[in-house]
Structure formats: structure tokens, C-alpha cells
Amino acid sequence: MTEVRTLLDGRGLVESPRWHGDRLYFSDWSAGEVVAVDPATGAAEVVARVTSLPLCTAWLPDGRLVIVSSADGLLLRREPDGTLVTHADLGPAAWNDIVADGRGNVYVNAVGFDPMSGEVAGPGAVWLVADGTVRQVADDIAFPNGMAVTSDNSTLIVADSYGHSLVAFDIGADGTLANRRLWADLGEAAAPDGICVDAEGAVWYADVPNRHCVRVAEGGEILRTVDLDRGAFACALGGADGTTLFITAAEWRGMTDAEMVTPASGQVLATEVDVPGAGRP
């Protein structure tokens, strides 16, 4: 059996794990905090406070952190002194997940409905933030969730939670997306959330209702599954050799519940895998 160890416990709705430097960063949506944790000691530090739900992050190539403040319609940037400044004005939308490629292009997606009321405005979309502009580069994604960029910066992969699939796009030199294709059909029971890519080109995806993380090859072959006792919201590869799979998990109550997760059920977990991470996040 796969050994899964607990790095942190007692959190809220935890999401957006990102390995950077020698620490794991994650967001606690319930607390409005971006937290860094040392996996060797468990020591945790709040590096940013943003009242937003969702609250997702990405690292720019220059080492600065960008944070989606969905409630304000802003993409914030954390400066070296810890201050938060506006990186881009996204405008009003149900902004969700984010990833940056190695060129500094930032992709932010938005769902086409209000998760609390269930009111549907249309399918979700992906937007590009580059050179001071914000523009839509993909649409017609039922529920865009986690995103990842391959190590050669050539491909963006998007988890479509309601489409039960992973979709891929070629990334152009100017950051635009083309050649949309089905990367993997995961089956009607799957609900992919946060994702990451490994050095063999496989994708790990977290799945809340099915309480597991799954490694899948392009085309849909399941390569490995890590089962949990609660919903898996996102996963990221990191650690000293890149072979630690970090997972954010909590007991899911549903979007219509005011808390969405059972209070204090949020955990940051870790397990060892065979293939190191590659690409972003």
C-alpha cells in the first residue's frame, strides 16, 4: 500500500499546492492565507493574506508569486518585500485556477457559473495575461479547473471537472492557444481538479468526490492511484528530488454548504512516487 503522511492538519479548504525553492506553498481558502511549509520540519509561515474564494497561485520565472483575488477581479503579485501589488486587472468573473509558463505568460481560467447559487452563464474559459494585457484564448470548457504547462513550454493541459477529461492546447510564441484536443477521457465518474505533470509526460490529477489522486497517461491509461479518506483538491510534485507528491485534501460538503468542507478537516499530505515532476506548476 502507498504510505501517505500528514504534513499539516486542522486547516480549511486547502488548494493550489506549489513547490518552490525548498518549501511547499499552498492556499487555505477558508482562512484567506497563502502558506509556506517546510516538509522536513512541518514549520509553516503565512506569506500572504487575501480574502478570496478561490485563492490560487503561480510562480513567475523571476521568482515572484502571483495570486488570483477572484473577489476583486485582480491578479496580485507578491514583491520581494512581501507587499502585494496589482499585476493585472482581470475584471469581474468567477476566476478560478492559474498557471504560468517559463516565458512569463500567465493563464487564468474562469468558470461560467456561480458555484454557490448554481446559476449558469455559460461554459468556462481560459485567459492569457501577458505584456500588460488580458485576453481570452480558449472557451467552451464546462468547468475549467487545474492547469499545467509541459516542461518545454509547448503545451497547456486543462482539467475539465464537469467534462470528466483533460484537454490540451499548443502554446504559441505569443502565448496564444491553438490545436485544442482531448488529452485524456477519464470516464464519467471522474472529476479532475488540480493537476501536475511529471518527467514522463504523465499527469497526476486530484479528484474530490472519488477521494484519490490518479496518474494518467495521454490517451487515458491509468498508471497509479493514491487513495485517501477525504477529497483530494490538488496535487503537485516537488521535494529534494522531485518525487514527492504533495496533496491538499479535506472533507467535502458540497458547493451549496456555506463551509464547503468540514471545518479543520483540511490536510497537506505527502507520498513518494517513482517519476519526478516536470513543467509547471
Rank of each mutant, 00 (worst) to 15 (best):
G91N: 10
L84D: 04
T57M: 13
L166V: 12
T243K: 10
G118M: 00
V129M: 00
R215G: 11
D152K: 02
G122R: 04
L65K: 06
G242A: 09
A173G: 12
V167W: 05
M116E: 14
T51W: 14
W29C: 07
V149E: 09
L74I: 09
R64M: 12
A71S: 06
D257T: 14
G220V: 13
L7G: 03
A250Q: 01
R135N: 08
E33Q: 14
L55T: 06
Q267M: 10
D274R: 03
D241F: 07
S69P: 07
T256H: 14
D140M: 04
G82L: 08
A168D: 13
E15M: 03
E251T: 14
S117Q: 09
L156F: 04
T57D: 10
H20I: 11
E119W: 00
R49D: 10
T225N: 13
N145R: 03
E3T: 14
A36K: 00
L90H: 04
E272L: 01
P144T: 14
I67H: 07
V99L: 06
V4W: 05
M147K: 04
E33W: 00
L245R: 02
C213A: 14
A173I: 08
D22L: 05
V4N: 12
G220L: 10
G277I: 08
V99H: 07
T150E: 02
A270D: 10
A191R: 11
G146H: 01
D229N: 13
V108P: 06
A100L: 10
A100R: 11
A43K: 08
T155V: 09
A264S: 06
A236M: 02
V4K: 06
V37R: 02
G239W: 06
E218M: 08
L84G: 07
G238S: 14
P281F: 02
A264T: 02
A94L: 10
V37D: 04
A121C: 06
A189N: 14
T176H: 15
R18N: 07
E200T: 10
V158S: 01
T244Y: 09
R78G: 04
A249P: 01
I171L: 03
P115L: 00
T176L: 10
D241Y: 04
G277E: 02
P17S: 13
C235Y: 02
T2L: 00
L186V: 12
N179I: 13
V203C: 03
A43R: 13
A58P: 03
N96Y: 02
T225K: 12
A191P: 00
P123N: 06
P61L: 02
